[in-house]
Design a protein around this nucleic acid. Structure first.
Length: 922
RNA sequence: GGGCGCGUAGCUCAGUUGGGAGAGCGCGGCGUUCGCAACGCUGAGGUCGAGGGUUCGAAUCCCUUCGCGUCCA
């Protein structure tokens, strides 16, 4: 039975039992920021189980994409070395949301396994929960499940009761939880990792594998740890497709199934090796196959390799695969080819792969090229690493490599493959730096140096790594999240404020529901007080979704008399709108005011918000659907939009995006907003933002008919796109690897910028006496003639210096047998002076030369001592002493030194003193 | 979020108490050659990422900032 058949038949089996076949959710959890990647079928139903969300079905079945890598249970290192660890896998499952329970699910599971999949029941074992009575827990043994299994004819000696660790499931410290029941399969003695021949269930040697876990959610655990039965218990089950496939295809290893074997073959063919011929190579091939699957699905779901978060885990996975490719001799990009094979194999079950395939291939190839570059630089750095020899001698790797083989080779000549003794090792701190700073993996270094009779100091490496971990952890503590003040939490409970500002900027009859001064609730405030005000309803938009909060004022009803000036509006707790204001009059609880938003500011903000949506859509159309919003700021004067993309945008890309946005602005399309429930919204193709939490009912904002842009959004927008006026990108840059940032202007912002630029252009052309249209030409001309002029001056100065030098030679005198030349020269350029002093040095052969000059109010001194005299005389000291006369200082080498000073009037004095200074030194 | 590293000629990179901006490759010219490669001579090419500070003087030291790389969380 092919894996594709298994998947289909599983889903169809439950569909025939009134389950809705629900598509796999994205590997990036949509509504759970605590989770790195989707790792179980129930992830997408978490809120349904918690009762926070309702669906229009109560039974579901899925084949869920899962990734387990990074985080706590990190068995990344195991992948490829065992038969059953993977970073990417598929979880088949069926779910009951307060509908059926144990009596239904157990017989179905048994039927599916033993009839539909025809697995012989004598090879199966089942487990139930044994109960726990140690306080605070008091959970009975799951006799109900036991009876269900017995009723199906499962012999009593095949049912095992296990404890909390294996057979009790909980979502978190609190919340839904319950016992589980598992079906295990006996793979036979050949599957035992430890060569067992007669071990009994539940031995964990690999012989008995868990096929299916049935979770019975029947309790709710509170903060005290007390469990109360849920009124409507639920079911959550999970069966790993890879293991089912291995069992049904009669393979001992998941890697032997049709899910992996074609990928392994592909990699083997590319590397020109044979699978099964060499243990290490086989491990590498399996790792490549596994990681190619993860990389393909993660990138398809919008993750890009990066230096933090999810993207970093992806990069780790990819680089592991690439490293193993290197060990197989694959030095050209290869992973993207295997990835395209993954797409072919999986596209029927996961159609989204087809659409993203070109992008996935490109992203992988780019990462492969980056990795090659990183490795190349790392290897250069490896040359500088310290090598500690067993003799105690320390050298560096490059030197070590150049030693004649007799100095090091005797060990590597031995053909014994696992000779543990070596001649020395790479120091741990260097090994760490190579990895930490240059990305060269310790394994890789070990492989590199092995052939030169060296090993690596893993302990030293680990010690450094531990320090790094502690540093990261220590700094993390300081960044604890601010907890909302209890006062605001209570106010929100008492009643949330209604926002009525989507269609108006002025609301009448707003009652003051709370006044807060310095975090304390008060009954009234005096004029002039700084106060936070909560109204029962308000047109003020509180900062959210990247859009800044409104400012404005409260006025007395029916008048234009300001009673409070609102400087900021924010949401300390979801649903509670708080106005930060200065009271102009005394205010008290229960007062009624008219709330008036600064409409001009709001209009500017609206333009930018709608433009952000148009920009988002334009980026996806232009660059590809991998573009995802990664952050956004909507302010009155500008908009900033962060999004995922693997490389910088070209000039043409930016123009295309700008054009597309403006095309929609000029089409003056009507904006539509609708409130609907989340499922319906997602079904119409609305873009939900990564990491955002949405309620049952969401607001959908569409441009025109929604075919171009449709997003879930709570912000304020223009009525028609034409209101935006004009859209202009002002900058594009990066915020993190794989994340780009665009800043743009709209409406009056564009006009303001245009005016500023026009003005500076006019000023520039006035300064250059050129027409604006000819500015570029004029600048080019100017810079060229300036360059030419400078060169001529330089050349002239050099020439002058040379001829002056000729004259100066006449002034040489002798002090204690040393030829000394001290002179004031009219050369302003430092390099000309150096040229001059060089000429003089050549002419006098042996001696001391000191030149002084004045340029731009500053003194320049330069001194030279010919090589034969540097033992007796130090140009640095000479020039330093002379500089004291002109209020300066200096220094340099023994043969050439420079100094500067601030007092030109004293230069002659300094020059007169010099012969004396030199004489003293001799 | 925290740390480390890098940014110098078209490319790859050197540049150590702060004191003359360099090499190799590539490019242009000339020579050698029937021609090419190679070789020899020669030349052009630089806001030392940007901004600020310290200093008589900064590629070099300090701060800020931008871009890139890398590790940890």
């Amino acid at each position: 039975m092919t894996s594709s058949d298994i998947r289909t038949r599983f889903l169809k089996f439950f569909e025939a039992r009134n389950h809705r076949i629900v598509p796999s959710s994205s590997l990036v959890p949509a509504n759970d920021p605590t989770l790195l990647f989707s790792n179980a079928g129930m992830n997408q139903f978490k809120d349904v189980f918690l009762g926070n969300e309702r669906r229009d079905y109560s039974r579901a079945t899925t084949s869920q994409k899962c990734v387990r890598a990074g985080g706590k249970h990190n068995d990344l290192e195991q992948v490829g070395r065992t038969t059953r660890h993977h970073t990417f896998f598929e979880m088949l499952g069926n779910f009951s949301f307060g509908d059926y329970f144990k009596k239904e699910v157990i017989p179905w599971a048994w039927e599916l396994i033993t009839r539909e999949f025809a697995i012989p029941s004598e090879k199966l074992y089942v487990t139930i929960f044994e109960g726990k009575s140690t306080p605070p827990d008091d959970i009975p043994r799951d006799d109900e499940a036991y009876e269900c299994w017995r009723a199906l004819g499962v012999p009593a000696d095949r049912i095992f009761a296990l404890g909390m660790k294996d057979n009790f499931w909980q979502m978190g410290e609190t919340g839904p939880c319950g016992p589980c029941s598992e079906i295990h399969y006996d793979m036979g003695i050949a599957a035992s990792d430890q060569g067992h021949t007669d071990c009994k269930f539940p031995c964990d040697c690999g012989r008995y594998v868990e096929l299916w876990n049935l979770v019975f959610m029947q309790f709710n655990r509170d903060e005290q740890g007390v469990m109360t039965p849920l009124p409507k218990p639920s079911i959550d089950t999970g069966a790993g497709l890879e293991r089912l496939a291995a069992v049904l295809q009669g393979k001992l290893s998941n890697f032997e199934t049709d899910l992996f074997r074609p990928l392994i073959e592909e990699a083997a063919a590319l590397a020109n090796v044979e699978y099964g011929a060499n243990h290490d190579a086989d491990v590498s091939l399996r790792i490549i196959a596994d990681h190619a699957r993860s990389a393909t699905f993660l990138i398809s779901d919008g993750v890009l390799p990066s230096n933090e978060g999810r993207g970093y885990v992806l990069r780790l996975i990819m680089r592991r695969a690439l490293y193993h490719g290197q060990t197989l001799g694959l030095n050209e990009p290869f992973l993207y080819k295997i990835s395209s094979r993954v797409v072919d194999m999986m596209k029927d079950a996961y159609p989204e792969l087809v659409q993203t395939a070109p992008h996935v291939a490109k992203a992988i190839k780019i990462e492969e090229e980056k990795y090659a570059q990183t490795t190349r630089i790392g290897i250069e750095k490896l040359n500088e690493a310290h090598v500690v020899l067993d003799s105690g001698e320390v050298t560096d790797f490059a030197t070590w490599m150049t030693r004649p083989p007799s100095g090091r080779r005797q060990l590597t000549d031995t053909t014994a493959p696992a000779a543990p003794s070596t001649l020395g090792y790479i120091r741990g701190d260097d090994l760490f730096t190579l990895h930490d700073t240059f990305g060269l993996r310790p394994d890789f270094v070990e492989d590199m140096v092995k052939n030169y009779g060296l090993t690596v100091d893993r302990d030293g490496y680990e010690a450094e790594m531990q320090k790094q971990r502690e540093r990261a952890r220590a700094s993390w503590k300081g960044a604890e999240k601010k907890i909302a003040s209890p006062l605001f939490l209570k106010l929100a409970e008492d009643g949330k404020s209604v926002f009525d500002g989507y269609t108006q900027t002025k609301s009448t009859n707003c009652k003051i529901a709370a006044l807060v001064v310095n975090g304390q609730a008060v009954g009234d405030v005096q004029a002039g007080a700084k106060v936070e005000i909560v109204l029962d309803h308000t047109p003020f938009y509180a900062e959210s979704g990247g859009q800044v909060g409104d400012t404005g004022r409260f006025v007395a009803p029916g008048t234009d008399h300001e009673v409070a000036h609102v400087q900021e509006t924010y949401q300390p707790v979801s649903g509670l709108i708080v106005h930060k204001a200065v009271a102009r009059e005394g205010l008290r609880m229960g007062d009624v005011v008219t709330a008036v938003v600064d409409a001009e500011r709001r209009d500017a903000t609206r333009r930018n918000h709608t433009a952000t949506h148009l920009l988002h859509a334009a980026l996806r159309k232009t660059l590809g659907t991998h573009v995802k919003q990664a952050g956004s700021l909507v302010a009155p004067d500008r908009l900033r939009f962060d999004f995922t993309h693997y490389t910088g945008l070209g000039e043409q890309d930016l123009l295309d995006v700008e054009d597309l946005v403006n095309q929609h602005v000029l089409a003056n399309e009507e904006m539509q907003t609708q409130v609907m429930d989340l499922d319906a919204a997602v079904n119409t193709g609305a873009m939900a933002l990564f990491g955002e939490k949405y309620g049952d009912h969401v607001r959908v904002v569409s441009v025109g008919d929604g075919s171009y842009s449709r997003e879930l959004c709570g912000g304020t927008h223009v009525r028609r796109t034409g209101d935006i006026g004009l859209f202009k990108i002002v900058s594009e840059g990066s915020v993190a690897a794989g994340t780009r940032r665009i800043e743009a202007l709209t409406g009056t912002g564009v006009l303001d910028q245009l005016r500023r630029q026009t003005k500076s252009l006019a000023q520039a052309s006035e300064a250059l006496h050129a027409k604006p249209g000819e500015l570029i030409e004029a600048i080019a001309k100017l810079s060229e003639s300036e360059k030419k002029f400078r060169k001529e001056v330089d050349a002239q100065q050099m020439k002058n210096a040379a001829s002056a030098a000729g004259d100066l030679v006449q002034q040489v005198r002798e002090i204690k047998g040393v030829r000394v030349l001290v002179a004031r020269v009219e050369v302003t350029d430092r390099s000309a002076m150096r040229q001059m002093i060089d000429d003089l040095r050549g002419k006098i052969q042996s001696g001391v030369i000191v030149l002084g000059s004045v340029a731009e109010g500053r003194v320049s001194l330069i001194a030279a001592v010919t090589k034969d005299l540097t033992a007796k005389l130090d140009a640095g000291k000479i020039v330093k002493q002379a500089a004291t006369y002109v209020e300066g200082s200096g220094g340099g080498r023994k043969d050439l030194a420079e100094a500067g000073g601030k007092n030109p009037s004293k230069l002659d004095e300094a020059l007169q003193a010099l012969p004396g200074i030199i004489e003293q030194m001799l």
